[in-house]
Simulated scan of single mutants.
Amino acid sequence: MQGCAPMKRRKTLLLTALLSLAMPAFAQPVCAPRYPPPTTVAAMFDMAAITADTLDALPDVDVAIAARGGQDLSRYGLRHSHLAFLVRNDQGGWDVVHLLNRCKTDASDLYREGLVNLVGESSITTDLRVGIPTPAVRGALKTMLNGAATQARALHEPRYSMLAYPGSTEYQNSNQWILEVAAAAMVQSAGGTALANRTAALDWLKQQGYTPTRMHIGIGKRLGARFFADNVAVTDHPASERISGNYSVVTVESVFDFLHRSGALERELSIPHQTPVPAVAATGVQPPVQ
């Protein structure tokens, strides 16, 4: 029966999400748990299922780049905050491969999770932005991200900063890792010399004219971040940026702009956010017949 398919999809997504929570890649600091309301959880699973169905309908597409909401960056004119690769696995489902900074520490790790983990609570407020790379770039990305993902891991810097400077290898944020792996895939798909490390990737991006976003952060926020936030560092930025408060940062928008301008994306999709359905209170009163 056709009606069984969505339910089966949601059960698969639930199992994947539970396994991802039960088996982290490495031991992480203990964070205070979050428990979204049931209506939000339902919206998360709905958005994940719609994303999987949308990608399944695209012939020969086995890798995509997705951007979710999350951190509120609206004061900077930015709608999305976090990038991830979506990779079709051997079972035909979709894995999320991305860099995460757990518990706001000064370190990051690479994770392979389910779609529900990516969309999260932003599924009720922000559309999912999905970029479909060209066939050649998709092929290179699939090779880089499969199995142990040795080449992609070589481009990972565990020292994390939300404001990592795009011209330095000292720190890295989640969007920067996606950008550098995509750059390596672009070079590989064009038959060029492989970008074996972050220095090579950053040099290539500079040569290709990648332009980061400039974010102005006031002195109050800068001092607060310096003394109270482990996951924010600005020592890698030029003195001129630290003095002015105008920081160059790799953002979702700057990455998508670069990929479009470079011809690495063949199209873009938008998965709509989901409106939570409020639960009906059990009052014992029958609703009127319409």
Score class of each variant (00 low, 15 high):
residue 120 G to H: 04
residue 244 S to K: 15
residue 270 S to D: 08
residue 290 Q to F: 03
residue 90 D to W: 15
residue 225 A to K: 15
residue 188 Q to T: 00
residue 47 M to T: 01
residue 256 F to P: 03
residue 197 N to T: 06
residue 200 A to G: 15
residue 272 P to G: 10
residue 62 D to P: 01
residue 231 N to P: 05
residue 120 G to W: 01
residue 109 D to V: 07
residue 284 G to L: 11
residue 154 A to E: 10
residue 123 S to T: 01
residue 7 M to K: 12
residue 12 T to I: 06
residue 278 P to W: 04
residue 14 L to V: 03
residue 214 R to T: 13
residue 115 L to W: 05
residue 145 L to R: 09
residue 283 T to M: 15
residue 208 Q to A: 03
residue 117 N to M: 07
residue 30 V to M: 15
residue 130 V to D: 02
residue 90 D to L: 10
residue 99 L to A: 07
residue 87 V to W: 12
residue 183 A to W: 12
residue 279 A to N: 03
residue 152 A to M: 04
residue 195 L to K: 06
residue 202 L to N: 07
residue 53 D to V: 08
residue 128 L to Y: 00
residue 268 E to R: 06
residue 288 P to S: 08
residue 97 V to P: 08
residue 187 V to C: 14
residue 236 D to Q: 06
residue 287 P to F: 02
residue 40 T to C: 04
residue 120 G to C: 01
residue 269 L to P: 00
residue 49 A to L: 11
residue 211 T to E: 07
residue 57 A to S: 14
residue 183 A to C: 01
residue 29 P to Q: 10
residue 163 L to D: 10
residue 9 R to A: 15
residue 123 S to F: 02
residue 15 L to S: 14
residue 205 L to E: 07
residue 135 P to R: 02
residue 150 T to Y: 09
residue 52 A to S: 13
residue 51 T to P: 09
residue 213 T to P: 01
residue 124 I to P: 10
residue 32 A to C: 03
residue 151 Q to T: 01
residue 25 A to W: 13
residue 128 L to I: 04
residue 130 V to Q: 03
residue 243 I to S: 11
residue 3 G to Q: 11
residue 270 S to G: 08
residue 122 S to W: 07
residue 256 F to Y: 09
residue 150 T to E: 07
residue 199 T to H: 02
residue 58 L to S: 15
residue 105 T to N: 04
residue 194 A to W: 09
residue 2 Q to I: 12
residue 7 M to V: 15
residue 135 P to G: 03
residue 158 P to C: 00
residue 31 C to H: 11
residue 191 G to E: 02
residue 197 N to R: 14
residue 33 P to L: 14
residue 197 N to I: 11
residue 288 P to I: 12
residue 88 R to P: 14
residue 153 R to H: 06
residue 12 T to V: 10
residue 63 V to K: 15
residue 161 S to V: 04
residue 186 M to N: 07
residue 154 A to R: 09
residue 23 M to G: 15
residue 26 F to R: 13
residue 261 R to K: 15
residue 39 T to S: 11
residue 119 V to Y: 10
residue 270 S to Y: 15
residue 15 L to F: 14
residue 222 R to W: 04
residue 125 T to W: 03
residue 240 S to E: 06
residue 120 G to F: 00
residue 201 A to R: 12
residue 264 A to G: 07
residue 24 P to V: 00
residue 204 W to N: 02
residue 250 V to L: 07
residue 19 L to C: 05
residue 138 R to W: 03
residue 124 I to M: 11
residue 107 A to T: 12
residue 96 V to L: 11
residue 52 A to P: 12
residue 55 L to T: 12
residue 252 V to F: 07
residue 1 M to V: 09
residue 221 K to Y: 06
residue 75 R to K: 10
residue 200 A to C: 15
residue 136 A to P: 05
residue 247 Y to I: 00
residue 13 L to S: 11
residue 184 A to D: 13
residue 31 C to Y: 07
residue 218 G to M: 04
residue 273 H to V: 10
residue 9 R to F: 11
residue 110 L to I: 11
residue 128 L to T: 08
residue 12 T to F: 08
residue 189 S to G: 02
residue 130 V to P: 00
residue 271 I to T: 15
residue 277 V to W: 03
residue 262 S to T: 03
residue 32 A to I: 12
residue 9 R to C: 13
residue 199 T to K: 08
residue 50 I to F: 09
residue 95 D to V: 00
residue 269 L to C: 01
